[in-house]
Amino acid sequence: MNVLIVEDERSLSHEMEIYLTRQNFNCDVAFNGKIASEKIADNSYDFVLLDLGLPDTDGLELLKAAKKSGKESAFIILTARGEVEDKIAGLDMGADDYIAKPFSLAELQSRMQAILRRKHGLKSNTVSIHDFSIDIQNRTVQCKGNNVVLTKKEFDLLHYLALHKNRVLTRMQLTEHIWGDVLEDDYESNYIDVHVKNLRKKLSAHGSIDWLETVRGVGYRVNA
């Protein structure tokens, strides 16, 4: 998978590069619009991660031009402006997703996976963890032939943990994934713990859940 990171803040693009390389993506970086246009024209990327606030070009213009030239790449807009209009305009121009800064890299990765699934059907739609299998397409969980009934949030949580299996996800990362869009005055809530507690209760009724580990003081991890 080839990814072009278009971001003028070098430390940010660097961190993204480290993370994505670790996830077996081939990363390329452009620090301004001009270089980005050239690279998009010369190469074939699966993903273009596009910052809207570039020093020389408006990211949206770049997106428009790329789409016009018939590039197949999936575009994800990254912006700190947080303008609703930008989001709408970006998605209208053919961007595949939109993430507001600051975002979690785990979140970025899960959005990229979702796009891959949607666009190419590359990934299998079922993720198996021990006795449990998660059907991402139909949003169902099965254990030894039995359906495990979960709420929307519980499913999202399990799916997110499974997607990043063998890695600790912090409470903050999980909170941002579940309530990222809700802005309310409760940043240090332990509601994630409550959700995980409920999830555990429901899953353990069907099979062993030793694989869902609590990492003390940090968060949770799915070991598979």
């Binding site: 993370y19 800064k101 890299l105």
Partner: peptide
């Protein structure tokens, strides 16, 4: 708009760096 950009970008950098160290 400026505040939004100028403050959220550095937060992004640190956020992602911590994430990478954790990974």
């Amino acid at each position: 708009t400026n505040v939004s950009h100028e403050l959220q970008t550095p937060i992004s950098v640190i956020q992602n760096r911590i994430e990478n160290i954790l990974v």
